[in-house]
Design a protein around this nucleic acid. Structure first.
Lengths: 196, 196
DNA sequence: AGTATTTGTGAACAGGTGTTGACTAGCGCT
DNA sequence: AGCGCTAGTCAACACCTGTTCACAAATACT
C-alpha cells in the first residue's frame, strides 16, 4: 500500500499504475500481490478507506468539544488541514481519484464529501442566528464552504511539500472566503424576501 | 482526436489511454498516429487547447455586451453551462485532467481557471457598490464564485447526459450560492473594520 | 516441537505496448 | 499529366502487462 501511494505521489494517477510496478516498488515478486488483494481496484478501495477512516474520527472528536460557534469552524478547518499535511500522499491519491478514478471510486469519495457537508450543516444549525433556517437552506449554505475547502486542499497539494509560507497564505485566503460566506448567510437571514 | 475524447468519456482517464487504443478506435493503424502527433501527451495538449479556445471567445463576447451588473453574471453563467453541455466530452476530459493529468496539463488548466477569476474580478470592479475595493480583495471575492462553478461543472458531468431536471436543479442551487456570496460581499463592504 | 496457515518465489503463458523503417495510396497544385 | 507532399499500411522489434500453477519459506498456534 505504501508503495502504491509513493508511486501515485510522484508519478502517474492510480488508474495508470500497473500491478507489476507496485510489487516492484514494494520489493516483492508480482505474484505476491494476490496474497493481499484480488485486484488493483481492490487495492484502490482499501487505500481510500485508509485515507478517510482516521480523518472521520478526528473530525468527530473536534466537533464533540462543543466549542462556541465560530471557534468550532476554525478548529475544524485547522485539524482538517494539519491532517492533510500529515497524510499528504493519501490525499494526493484521493485528489486524483475524485474525478479521474473509476465510477465506484468517485462515488465513494463524493459520498464522503457529502457527509462533511451534512455535518457542517448540523453544526451550523446550532448557531444562535441560524436556529430557524430550513435544513435544506443550511445544506445549501454549507456546501460552498466545503467546496472551498476541497478546492483549497487540492491547491495546497499542488504546492511544494515544504513551502510553509505559501501554505500559510492559502489558509489566510481560505479563512477570508469562509468569512465572506458567513457574511452572506447573515444578510440572507435579514432579507428573507429576496430568496425565492 | 474524436476517438480519444470518446474513449475518455466512456472509459478511463486520458493518462491510462494507449496509443494503440486510440488509433484502433479511429479505425487506423497504430503507426498512422505519428503523422499527426509526436506523442500521446501532444494529443492531450491539443485536446486541451481545443476545449478552451472557442469557450474563451464566447465568454469574451458575452462580456462585451456590457449588460447591467447582475444580468452579466447570470448571462455568463448561462452561456458557460450551455457550452459545457454542448461540449460534454471535452469537459469530461478536462475535468479528469485537472487533478489526474500530467504536471504541464494541470498547470495549463489551472491557468485557464485563474484567467476566469481575473476577468470576473474585472467585471465586478465595474459594479457601482464595489468601485473602491482593492484589486486583491476583488480577486478574493471572485475566486469562490469560480470555485463553485468548477465544482458544479464537475457534478453536472457526473449526471446522466439527458437528466434535464437534475441539471436544472443544480443550476438553481448554483444561482443561490452565487447570490449568497454577493450578499457576503455587500456586508463585507459595510463592515470593513472586521476584515483584518 | 510440530503442525497449519500465511506469505513469498519462480517459471511460463498469451497478449498488449511504443516505436523503427521502408513502402504505397490519395490528394493538391502547377 | 505529372510532380510532391500528406496520410495510411505492413512487418517487426524488444518490452511490459495480468494471471496461472506448483513449490518453498516464514510465521502463528497449540
Amino acid at each position: 500500500m505504501d508503495a502504491a501511494l509513493d508511486l501515485v505521489a510522484k508519478k502517474a494517477p492510480f488508474s495508470s499504475l500497473s500491478l507489476r510496478e507496485v510489487t516492484k516498488r514494494a520489493g516483492v515478486v508480482p505474484t505476491a500481490f494476490y496474497r493481499h488483494f484480488p485486484d488493483m481496484s481492490a487495492l484502490g478501495l482499501t487505500l481510500l478507506d485508509e485515507s478517510f477512516r482516521t480523518l472521520r474520527q478526528m473530525m468527530r472528536e473536534v466537533r464533540q468539544q462543543e466549542l462556541p460557534s465560530e471557534r468550532m469552524i476554525r478548529g475544524s478547518m485547522d485539524t482538517f488541514f494539519t491532517y492533510v499535511r500529515n497524510n499528504r500522499n493519501h490525499f494526493l491519491f484521493v485528489s486524483k481519484e475524485l474525478y479521474g478514478g473509476s465510477a465506484t471510486m468517485r462515488q465513494a469519495i463524493r459520498r464522503e464529501i457529502r457527509l462533511f457537508v451534512s455535518e457542517l450543516a448540523m453544526d451550523m444549525s446550532r448557531f444562535p442566528f441560524l436556529v430557524d433556517v430550513s435544513a435544506e437552506d443550511l445544506q445549501m449554505m454549507a456546501s460552498p464552504v466545503v467546496n472551498g475547502v476541497v478546492a483549497l486542499t487540492q491547491e495546497m497539494l499542488e504546492l511544494d511539500e515544504d513551502d510553509e509560507t505559501g501554505q500559510q497564505e492559502m489558509l489566510l485566503i481560505a479563512e477570508k472566503q469562509v468569512r465572506l460566506i458567513y457574511f452572506g448567510v447573515a444578510l440572507w437571514r435579514s432579507h428573507p424576501d429576496t430568496n425565492t
